[in-house]
Amino acid sequence: MKRNLVALPAMVVLAVLAGAYGSFFATGLLRQVPGTASVAGPLSLDNYLRFLAGGGQVPVFLDTFGFAVLLTLITALIGYPLAYFIARTESRFLRVFFLAVLVATFLSGSVTRAYGWMVILGNRGLLNSLLLNAGLIEQPFRILYRQLGVGIALVHFLLPFFVLTVVGGIRNVPRALEEASRDLGCGPARTFMRVTLPLSLPAVAEGMALSLALALSAFLFPLMLGGGRVRLVANYIYDQIFVAFDIPFAAVVSAGFLVCSCAALLVMAGLQRLLLRRFATGGLT
């Protein structure tokens, strides 16, 4: 009984969220009044059928999932060494410094950051000026206004989420296990591969699931840094609502994307559970 009372606020929040989604998805049963921004009956499954028949969104879905998976992998490849360094450095100063830098990126707003990337990545930006002055390139290298620039900004956005998740996972791998491995004749590199990395894999999977979810829902960076060329599902839905004013179809696309994203995250969660069962550190010091 007490437990039920404690759960009540969470239930209310969930109910409101579910209700909001529900009303949005129900909108998908209506249709747009042509030339207007209004919706009207009668109820039909036309929009859902149009979606299932591939109503223009399929390439956008594929692009979005491909891009999000790629960004997640890049984030993991860059983020893991960073997390490892933060978790295992002897220097308290360096650990605090790197954590502070990561947390600071949380604090800067997305719009501010997008403008920052424009200054850095533009053809006349800091990066190109640096490369030109260093003589490494002869022509400015176009990064902004294409997928590359959006990808850089998104990886930078995802990194703190991934790193902060994985730092905990690595710190939970007892030092004594690494010492035991060294003690038994295994050098530092092989100790990492055989002990530290496998035991931190559940945290890596968790960090990747988080990154994937965030990458899938990217909206602002593609819009501001993509030069109109990078269009992810969120941008597609935005266009359906704010350009075509086809709110019913936007609702259906949202519902479909939610299902696909949940499926992807369930796969990640399953992977994590599998890894946890295999590489659990729990119960031992």
Binding site: A176, V195, L199
Partner: peptide, 14 residues
Amino acid sequence: PTATVFQGYALFPH
């Protein structure tokens, strides 16, 4: 040429 039994044993849990 040493081998250690660590406090808490440090068995590889995986």
